[in-house]
Design a protein around this nucleic acid. Structure first.
Lengths: 156, 156
DNA sequence: CCAATAAGGTTTATATATAAATTATATGCA
DNA sequence: TGCATATAATTTATATATAAACCTTATTGG
């Protein structure tokens, strides 16, 4: 359904730029929601899952700020997030001895086991979400979004 | 930059579906962030702005649940949101006399004035965000996202 | 007419995003 | 050496998302 109808919007969009931006937001909300529902069955939130994925992908400990940096999120939130993951035994903290300001975060064995259980159902969900598009459409979508982020305003 | 590089991901994505989904999430985060920064200058959050837009677009009072429904968000959050907007004098609540369970929300004069001030800078921001894409690319992006939401799993 | 159920909202509890201020530690440079 | 500044993280405060429980008012089937 066109977005204008979906939102019961009475007037058309002011510009194709705005329409595209709102389409991105709407689609993202949907995807995030769906993934969140799946992760909930494993006791994780989206943010918690992201942290674990980043740590697993890194293959070793990472400073807190590096983790925050690889998420889109702003710094202070990372502290509480790690707190809760640590309390669940999914990650561990360790202070760096050379620079005592730095705190390294590492995924724990339990965390890796949990991720391993999630991998397959999540991959299937991704297919369920966007698998009705052709491979060519999927590539094109990724390509357009990557080019969208080449905007001068993309820097964060 | 390809998303794999942007995320410092060491392995390629498991599927083009997953890559596209993550591209949507990443781009959405960026857009939401930028719009949020602009709205902050006007003392509004994204959610508050969305409520005001919906109410202005409706042209008249709407039941709380209808507002919640037009946002992606889940119901209970709407109460606090409206609370804060009402405290700022941007909207008003009124209980329906026929069905006393229903609460109508209406945008206040102050709310309309505030939106009017935001309209132009926001339109300019949208151009700044995605204006480097050609019109054809913008249309194609919207089209692909609309088709993405035709997934069987899109229902909410 | 009344009990069961449904529907519209709110409250409560937990997790998060964000800004602003703070703490602890490092570094630069006179 | 010694203080100003920068950096890594945390704390604090406000706004939100979400689920679950609850309250109130309507509706409906006996």
């Amino acid at each position: 359904m066109p977005l204008q109808a979906e939102l019961k919007k009475q007037r058309p969009f002011e510009s194709p730029e705005q329409e595209a931006a709102l389409n991105v937001l709407r689609t993202s909300d949907w995807i995030e929601n769906r993934i969140g529902r799946l992760l909930r069955d494993f006791g994780l939130t989206n943010s918690q899952y992201n942290v674990l994925r980043i740590l697993r992908g890194a293959g070793g400990p990472l400073p807190s700020l590096e983790v925050a940096d690889r998420m889109i999120r702003v710094v202070p939130a990372i502290t509480g997030l790690i707190d809760r993951l640590e309390k669940q035994g999914l990650v561990s903290r360790r202070r760096c001895s050379e620079d005592r300001r730095v705190v390294y975060i590492e995924i724990a064995r339990e965390g890796k086991k949990l991720l391993a259980k999630i991998d397959k159902p999540l991959a299937e969900l991704h297919i369920g979400l966007l698998g009705h598009l052709s491979k060519s459409d999927q590539r094109q979508l990724s390509n357009l979004l990557e080019r969208a982020r080449q905007s001068k305003l993309y820097s964060e």
